[in-house]
Amino acid sequence: MTLENVLDTIAAVCMITGALLSLAAGVALLRFPDLMSRMHAATKPQVLGLLLMLTGCAIRIGALVDITTMVLIAIFQLATAPVAAHMVGRAVYRDGHTRKDLLIVDELAPDADKFTEVSPDQSRQTPGAPR
C-alpha cells in the first residue's frame, strides 16, 4: 500500500464522515420537535461537517495555495455561523416560538417583559389576540 493510497483512504474517511454529519442534520431538521433543537442540529454540517470535508479536500489536492483558500473558507464559516445563529435564536425567543416545556432553564424569562410586549406563551396560544 503506497503513501498515496493511505492519504486517499484518510481523505475518503474524512469526507464520508462530513457527509454523515450533513445527513444527521437533515434527519434532525425533520424529527426534532422545536426550533431551538433544530438550530442545535443545524450547526453540525455548518462547522464540523465543513471542516472534515475541507480536510479531505486539502489531503486530496495538496497544493499550498489551495489549502490557504480552504483555511479562509473555514475561518469565514466559523466567524459568520455563530452570528447568524445568534440572530435567529433572538428572533425565535422574541416571537415566542420556544417550547417552554422542553427548556430545562430559561434565564431570559425574568426579563422577558423588557423586550416583548406579550409573554411568549400567550402570543403562541392565541395568535389573533391584540398585541
Binding site: A11, M15, G18, A19, S22, A25, G26, L29, L35, R38, M39, A42, P45, Q46, G49, L50, M53, L54, G56, C57, R60, I61, M70, I73, Q77, A81, A84, V88, A91, V92, D95, H97
Partner: peptide, 24 residues
C-alpha cells in the same frame, strides 16, 4: 424561522458538496 434554519443547513450542505466535488 424554521425555513431560515433549514435554508442555512441547505447552504452548508451545498458548500460541503462543492468542496467534495473539488476533492474528488
Amino acid at each position: 424561522l424554521d425555513r431560515i434554519v433549514a435554508t442555512d443547513v441547505l447552504l452548508a450542505i451545498i458548500i460541503t458538496g462543492i468542496a467534495a466535488e473539488a476533492a474528488f
